[in-house]
């Protein structure tokens, strides 16, 4: 089973995250890391590969530092990595990113068929959750998004997931090849151990450009984006804050404050 895991390089959510004057997330502040929610996708791929004798490729698109994201995937145990690196990709919206990733998955599929494409449920920077469905659409693959359980039956080539939505739970299935996005409830990602870190140094990282993938630079990046950030501003701190230590009447004071603020 050949599995491609799409991962994103994002600012650490514990760091002081910023938007630049262009409205883009600042990703070169030195606090970049593999998107935590993508670790669940890498873990799912590794578990399936161990069970079904698979081969795992971690794929990212992003600036120079984004290679750190796929390196982390290699350290966890993936077999090889692909980094799409091209200045023309900068400023892509989710649809543009899906276009580039789809081209890269097809490129990988030319070597040997890709059975399964895995993603996390969201990037912790943008949190749009648009990419999995957009990528499935671009690849013309059936999508099983938001999997909180995942079972693959390679004998019949069927993938089954369960997922929780706001008002319902669903069980979905489809035949390979498919795209699955996984939640952080699916598994507990492994930490790279010393052996994994050493082994990762010898694993191949292939860098590809848009030209390698046959993607017209005008269709992606800022040039191809269908949305444009006009303005980005840090939110001002909240004003008129009340902080107190309970000396026996804090509940009463809270009630009075809520009434005064017309919140009840």
């Amino acid at each position: 089973m050949r599995i491609v895991v799409c991962v994103k390089f994002v600012p650490d959510i514990q760091s002081d995250r910023q938007l630049g004057p262009d409205g883009r997330v600042v990703r070169d502040g030195g606090d970049g890391t593999l998107n935590e929610l993508d670790e669940n996708a890498v873990e799912a791929a590794l578990a399936l590969a161990e069970e079904h004798d698979g081969h795992v490729v971690v794929l990212t698109v992003g600036p120079d530092d984004a290679v750190d994201a796929v390196r982390k995937g290699l350290q966890m145990g993936a077999d090889e990595a692909v980094h799409v690196l091209d200045d023309a990709v900068a400023g892509s919206d989710a649809i543009g990113t899906a276009t580039v990733l789809a081209a890269a998955v097809r490129h990988l599929g030319a070597d040997a068929p890709v059975d399964l494409v895995l993603t996390g449920m969201a990037g912790l920077d943008g949190l749009t959750s648009l990419l999995p469905a957009a990528l499935a659409e671009a690849l013309d693959l059936p999508a099983l998004p938001l999997a909180s359980t995942l079972a693959v039956d390679p004998a019949v080539g069927t993938v089954t997931v369960t997922r929780r939505l706001d008002h319902a739970t669903e069980t979905l299935s489809a035949d390979l090849p498919v795209l699955v996005s996984v939640t952080d409830g699916l598994n507990e990602p492994r930490y790279p151990n010393f052996k994994g870190i050493m082994a990762a140094r010898k694993k191949p990282v292939t860098t590809l450009t848009l030209a390698d993938l046959g993607v017209d630079p005008g269709t992606v990046g800022a040039a191809g984006a269908r949305t444009e950030v006009l303005e980005a501003a840090a939110r001002p701190p909240r004003e008129d804050r009340v902080l107190l230590t309970d000396t026996g009447d804090a509940g009463t004071r809270l009630a009075a404050w809520l009434v005064e603020r017309k919140l009840v």
């Binding site: 902080l243 230590t245 509940g251």
Partner: peptide, 28 residues
């Protein structure tokens, strides 16, 4: 959470919440 709270109480929730609920019922 106190860094982003408009109204923060350092205290025991099992004392503060029921007191607030009782006072709100009284006011209403």
């Amino acid at each position: 959470i106190f860094e982003i709270a408009d109204f923060g109480v350092v205290g025991d929730l099992f004392a503060v919440l029921p007191q607030a609920a009782a006072e709100l019922r009284r006011l209403q």
